[in-house]
């Protein structure tokens, strides 16, 4: 793995202005996050199930949707707990989610609108339950960090898979992308 997931996490935090206050606020609502996670999963998979392509991916193997639903619930709750205060474990887990996406064929075109659904549904719950508006902002930030992280992992994992299969060096791979892009 060419990319250091922990370093990327730190960079994403800086870029998204994800502060210590955001972390404290999310952690103080960790129980709430855990409580609504199954409902969020319900909404999320209901949304994905209505997309023909996504539905085909989710139901391709027996038990896949159940496993993914469990992963979603954990993932959602972890955005509030931060696992190890949004450290290496948190980053590695987001990396792993990106890897799973590559393995099962979930592209960024599927992930980005799906993440928007999470943000939208979470926002509805925040309003309905009169949670502080700052929480909405903190949750949006971590959702976007996770999105960026998962998508970057997607790119890195895809590249690493090509390098592994072809024996190409990373520099050669980038050169091919660059010469190919120039001719488009």
């Amino acid at each position: 793995m060419a990319l250091d997931s922990h370093k990327l996490m730190n960079k994403m935090e800086q870029r998204s202005l994800f502060t210590a206050e955001d972390k404290t606020l999310l952690q103080s609502h960790a129980d709430w996050g855990r409580e609504i996670a199954p409902d969020m999963a319900e909404k999320f998979y209901d949304y994905l199930g209505r997309d023909e392509e996504m539905n085909a991916i989710l139901t391709e193997k027996e038990g896949r949707i159940h496993r993914l639903r469990e992963t979603f619930i954990e993932w959602f709750a972890e955005m509030f707990t931060g696992m190890d205060n949004w450290g290496g474990d948190y980053a590695d887990r987001r990396w792993r989610i990106g890897l799973i996406h590559v393995r099962i064929g979930i592209d960024p075109q599927h992930v980005v609108p799906a993440m928007a659904t999470v943000v939208r549904e979470a926002e509805k719950r925040l309003i309905a339950e009169s949670k502080p508006s700052e929480l909405k902002e903190s949750l949006s930030k971590i959702c976007m960090i996770d999105l960026a992280f998962i998508e970057q992992a997607y790119v890195e994992v895809s590249s690493a898979a090509v390098l592994r299969e072809t024996g190409w060096t990373e520099r050669l791979f980038r050169r091919l992308i660059s010469t190919g892009a120039d001719s488009m």
Binding site: T166, G167, W168, L172, R175, L176, T179
Partner: peptide
């Protein structure tokens, strides 16, 4: 780039 890619 293509030569290196092909040999590898």
């Amino acid at each position: 780039a293509m030569s290196a890619a092909m040999l590898s």
